[in-house]
Design a protein around this nucleic acid. Structure first.
Lengths: 230, 230
DNA sequence: GTTTGTGAAGGATTTCACAGCA
DNA sequence: TGCTGTGAAATCCTTCACAAAC
């Protein structure tokens, strides 16, 4: 379905290259909800229905999608299958991505064992650690390599994504090494605000930070609340 | 301007009650960086220095803090210890918070074993599961209870936070149960966009979603990148 | 009748820039 | 001098509202 043509450059927007980052971050949510509709057997969905699922306004969904093309049909909505395919292609989810994990402690092992990455096309193909006791061993079917072989492994194995699961104190050093190895996307589990050049994406997974902002609303006087996409 | 006799904060803002949610979400980052400065022995910090660490503009930091009070001294900056204390108090991080975990599968067990919550004042005091084979057993020092005892346990143990680590298909039901039990803050590890009343806070921890938006920038044509706090 | 795609309006957040204080 | 706190300006993001399409 990833045919050679870009959706339909009829609108006023440039192709989709200038979509705000917030919008790009919502796209995976749409993909996920579309999968649910598809599983439920729906052939078409409206922005209204998508919005109801995601607790967003239909207008926002339509505007978001409009950055990338004109995928809907008036009076009818969006074809579930086609929109899902289209968005997956825009996000690059129609291929496999190889990832390298740094840090094979408790957390790193849990990440390797986590079954949620593979079905979505993310494959951890190598693990790295500084501890020479574990280097050379296997965890599941993944070889643990020395941390100073990152660059070589990245090149040899086609690793495009780095996953950081080392203690906070070591995180920036590891991230620098990943960047030096040419990695442009980093998923960081360490509780630090890391520094990267601005052609590198970095996202933090930080449950403590999430809890620490929710407690604000648990204090008696503060009502209201917040929903953050998950 | 409408000041009656507000004891501590002298500013012009209302006490801090109307701080935008984005601002509240950044506060924990400030707390974290302040701890680093404190560990490094600094007594004072400027918004410039904080901004450098967090890759934010000094103006944003000053504006954020101004929602809650006037903590700095012109020409000198902020007292590291005092600001940290003040922010912890605003966020409610100066107490312990009890959490209940739902789902003791692989992920749930990893969460129980995760050593990052306790030092920050978050304590998992009970675990729940639907599987009668595990109900009644202990994981570490935590008892596994039946999922339909949530309400009673929440009351008995003073649980204020729910942590959801069940399969996607079960997540909404579990979240409904937590809400019915009076829980107002939920940390959701399940990959679903959950529905909660708006006096309940919910945050998702979702590494797949994070990866799925980064791949957009890995596609050849899309340069630039993003830094998301971690 | 229904629902999209989108300019224009509205709202929210960030940054500027400077008065005021140490 | 150095740096905060903050109105005002600028930017960014969301929602409105409606013509066009089915």
């Amino acid at each position: 379905m990833t045919m050679g043509f870009t959706p339909a450059p009829t609108g006023d927007h440039p192709p989709g290259a200038d979509a705000p980052e917030v919008v790009v971050q919502r796209l995976p949510l749409y993909v996920r909800v579309l999968a649910q509709f598809e599983a439920a057997g729906a052939e078409m969905v409206s922005s209204e229905q998508l919005g109801a699922q995601l607790q967003m306004t239909p207008a926002q969904i339509r505007k978001d999608l409009s950055y990338f093309g004109r995928f809907g049909k008036q009076g009818r909505g969006y074809n579930v299958k086609r929109l899902a395919l289209e968005l997956r292609s825009i996000l690059g989810l129609d291929r496999q991505w190889n990832a390298g994990l740094v840090g094979v402690g408790r957390l790193g092992r849990a990440i390797i064992a986590y079954p949620g990455f593979r079905p979505e096309g993310f494959r951890i193909v190598a693990a790295f650690d500084a501890d020479s006791d574990v280097v050379g061993s296997d965890i599941g079917d993944i070889q643990v390599r020395s941390i100073n072989q990152i660059k070589k492994s990245v090149d040899d194995l086609g690793i495009r994504i780095g996953i950081v699961a080392v203690p906070a104190a070591d995180a920036q050093g590891v991230i620098d090494a990943l960047v030096a190895a040419g990695i442009k996307a980093i998923l960081n589990y360490a509780p630090v605000a890391a520094h990267v050049p601005n052609d590198v994406s970095i996202r933090g997974v930080d449950p403590v930070l999430a809890l620490q902002s929710m407690t604000y609303f648990l204090k008696p006087h503060n009502a209201g609340a917040s929903a953050a996409g998950d």
